[in-house]
Amino acid sequence: MRKKNIWLTLMASIVFIFLIIPLFIVVVTAFGESPSIQFPIKGFSLQWFGEVFKTKSFMRGMKTSLFISIWATVASIIIGVPAAYALARGTVKRRALLKNVFLSPTFVPGIVIGFALFQFLTIKLQMKIITSLFLGHFLISLPYIIRVVGSSLEHFDFSIEEAAWTLGCTKTKSFVKVVLPNISSGIFASFMLAFINSFNNIPVSMFLSGPGVQTLPIALMNHIEYNYDPTVSAMSVMLMLCTILLMWVIEKTLGLATIA
């Protein structure tokens, strides 16, 4: 280990405190007794966690968010993994262009995607809002799959696949038996990243909310606008616990560095 400079240590410490303090404050405010948010808190209570479950918009939002994020991510894997494979196999013409097409949702601001889908799919084509919401989240998940699975395919030795062919395995079967098991950690990583990103997304979902259809982050945002109370803190604590759980799973399976 190399020597560290005192100023460098000081600066880094301030940055880490800056990163952790705001969320720490949110956690503390969830346990107060007062109906308004206070810091430091007076008394100790878990009532706001009970409130979370009584807040209909949170519960409905949670359901919608889980439903949308899981299925959008699954869909993006089903569409994205074969595409990433085709792009990596290198026999495709205009590979760079096609790759950019698949990454294009990252070049378009989220709010613009949401606006475009709302206007075209929901208003013009009269699709259900939930369908547009699903498609929007599918679009923003796809680039994660292409990037992360693509990079694990870059490390994949394609002669392994060819070996399977020479041993009498058809192309489809080899893909399932030999390619997929060797990029499974990449697929898992891309799933986690795409899921977290989709679950947390706001700009795309902003336009795609309607009666009974609202993702959790949007519900939270609307709630804060009218009721600035510790229920939000309690909900935040619960979401943070989920984040910690996900981070723990990622650390145990892939190592956190893989998603950094």
Binding site: D157, S159, I160, E162
Partner: peptide, 19 residues
């Protein structure tokens, strides 16, 4: 096609199935 030829091939990288 390759999978119906019944040849054995040894690759430069060996191409063993890592899993």
């Amino acid at each position: 096609p390759v999978h119906k030829r019944n040849f054995g091939m040894v690759f430069q990288s060996y191409a063993l199935f890592p899993h």
